[in-house]
Simulated scan of single mutants.
Amino acid sequence: MTALAGFVDAVGYTAMGHLYLSFMSGNSTQFGMAVAGGNAHVVGWAGAVIATFLLGAFIGSLIHAAEGEIGMPLVLVCEFVCLISAWSLNGVIAQNCALLFVAVAMGMQNSLHKAVAGASTGKSFITGALFGTGDALARACLGRAHFAEAAANAISWLAFVAGVTNGAISVGAFGIGPALLGAAGFVVLLMILSILWRRRR
């Protein structure tokens, strides 16, 4: 999930004038700078991405909390629908408007984060993964944590960077539409894995 967040951030950065579709810290920084500089265009689009991400987080959290054991697959189905909507509307409506569906999907996805070896993974805010790596390393050296927690945080950061790299390569080689289809296909894989994991449990 973290790699997918990085992938769609590369898509958003390329297509939306350096705005992100999952990394709201960067968008919030740009939003504040645009407010200070009086740049209404950036204020409007950064605000729209932030608002749609917030909407996705709200919807995803409601679905995940209400549906118990099938919550994760159901949120992933909704995320898939959002990505396919963005792909199918790209070219029909303004590209920036179509990509807002991806921001909704990323907000939903953040409701699915999981603790792995004490590290919170699957989120799209990567600053926490970097801090968590350093913090867990320090606590492990003091005997208060396991090195596995630092490794899980570091792997989360690496997954995000790998996703960004693949997203940038995909957009450059194939364009926005195929990149969105690739992201949707990855969500299908996540759905299958989540269903198999729950059945195994």
Rank of each mutant, 00 (worst) to 15 (best):
L142E: 07
G143D: 00
N166P: 12
F174I: 14
F174Y: 14
W157I: 06
A151G: 09
L142D: 09
S156F: 11
A151M: 13
L158Y: 08
A152P: 00
A168K: 05
I169A: 10
F147T: 11
A145T: 08
I176V: 11
W157G: 02
L142H: 11
G172P: 01
A159R: 02
A154Q: 04
A152C: 04
A150Y: 00
S170N: 08
S156A: 15
G167S: 06
A168L: 11
N166A: 14
H146A: 13
A159V: 09
T165W: 12
V164S: 10
S156N: 15
G175R: 02
A154H: 05
V164T: 14
A150T: 01
I169C: 05
G163T: 07
I176N: 01
F160D: 01
F174Q: 11
I155R: 07
A173S: 14
G163S: 06
G163I: 06
I169K: 12
V161C: 12
A150N: 00
A145K: 05
A162W: 08
L158G: 09
V164W: 04
A148D: 09
F147H: 11
A162L: 15
A173I: 15
R144P: 05
I169H: 10
I155F: 09
F160N: 02
E149T: 09
G163D: 03
A152F: 01
T165N: 14
A152M: 03
E149N: 04
G143P: 01
A168R: 04
V161D: 09
I176M: 06
I176T: 10
A150W: 00
A168V: 06
A154N: 07
T165E: 13
A151V: 13
T165D: 13
S170F: 08
A159N: 05
I176L: 08
A150Q: 01
A152I: 00
V171N: 02
H146L: 14
N166C: 15
N153E: 05
N166G: 15
A173D: 07
A145G: 08
V171F: 02
V164M: 11
S156Q: 15
E149D: 07
A159L: 11
G172H: 08
V171D: 03
N153C: 07
T165F: 14
S170L: 07
L142Q: 11
G143A: 02
A168Y: 05
I169Q: 10
A173L: 15
I169T: 14
F174M: 11
A145V: 09
G143E: 00
A150F: 00
E149F: 02
G172L: 06
G167H: 01
H146C: 13
T165I: 14
A152N: 03
N153Q: 06
L142G: 07
N153F: 02
